[in-house]
Amino acid sequence: MCCRLLIPNWLAGLLATGVLLILLVFTASHGAVQIPLSAIPDLLLMNAPLLSDEQQFWRDVLLEIRLPRVLFAALAGGVLALAGATMQALFRNPLAEPGLIGISSGASLGAVSAIVLGGGSFAILAPAAFLGSILATALAYHLGRRYAGMAGLLLAGIAINAICGSLMGLFTYLADDNQLRSLTFWNMGSLAGATWQRLALLGPFLLLISIWIMRYWRAMNALLLGEREALHLGFAIKGLRRKLIVLVALLIGPLVAATGGIGFVGLVVPHCARMLLGADHRRLLPASFLLGAIALVLADYIARIAVVPAELPIGVVTSLIGGPFFLWLLLSRKS
């Protein structure tokens, strides 16, 4: 493809990391409360008693609200895009995304049932969503195993998504007005709940799993050639498939539990990365992670500043901007 970036891997990685860091600082300082960029070094380095009242306030906003939030946005975006790239490799189809095998709808069903039956505090909601995603995926995998190839998994995933959808409809029917509001917002996703505590809980785990997935780049490349070809190159397809699905579920389950449904990142970002860098997973997987992080930090920034002092649900922003952007990409690409 003519529009591929012809720069060395390390330089591309460095550039993307640089952009991400600049974005993190920029978006952390902007929002309902504006913090001048020039004040940030003082806020971070000076002792608290030396700061003025206004600076103290800035410091609290920056350290307690913004910073964990932008970092969590970066982590979530990276993880969603990486999971998307992995699913696309696994299904050998650029339209695949984690929701295909029930991960997202299972999580939604878990969350919705927690809201309607259990009150919906985060302590109940998050484990319920996680459990839902893992159960739905396990069920799809187990049922789909009877067919050869990925067709069975895909069909089982479709059935599970439909069942989860209808059960969610049932809970929606049963819900009162407050619960309706909560579950609607949960489904549109939010990063407002990001705290240092949550970041510390999920961050190391998700990064570890991400690095683990990236180590399978050879197998994913071989899968591009075909399942038989991958077999001939020494990859045990069935075991590989199970491993990758488990890893994706371990990435997306906890994440969706914490943020709700954030659509489109997992589908579009790997696609963009592939257009820029080609399909070699050695580059594609880290590139998807970095681009996903950049995309979601930007989307969350827009969600925060678009309707100040209120806030748009992040899932709305990703789809509202991601959809037309994706269309533009597809249309502007010369065949």
Partner: peptide, 22 residues
């Protein structure tokens, strides 16, 4: 499988490739 791949190579019929590799 991984052992076999070190001593046996296969060229399948009609190899296709959907993704963009060099």
């Amino acid at each position: 499988n991984s052992q076999l791949a070190r001593v046996r190579a296969v060229l399948p019929q009609n190899p296709g490739l959907g993704f963009n590799l060099s």
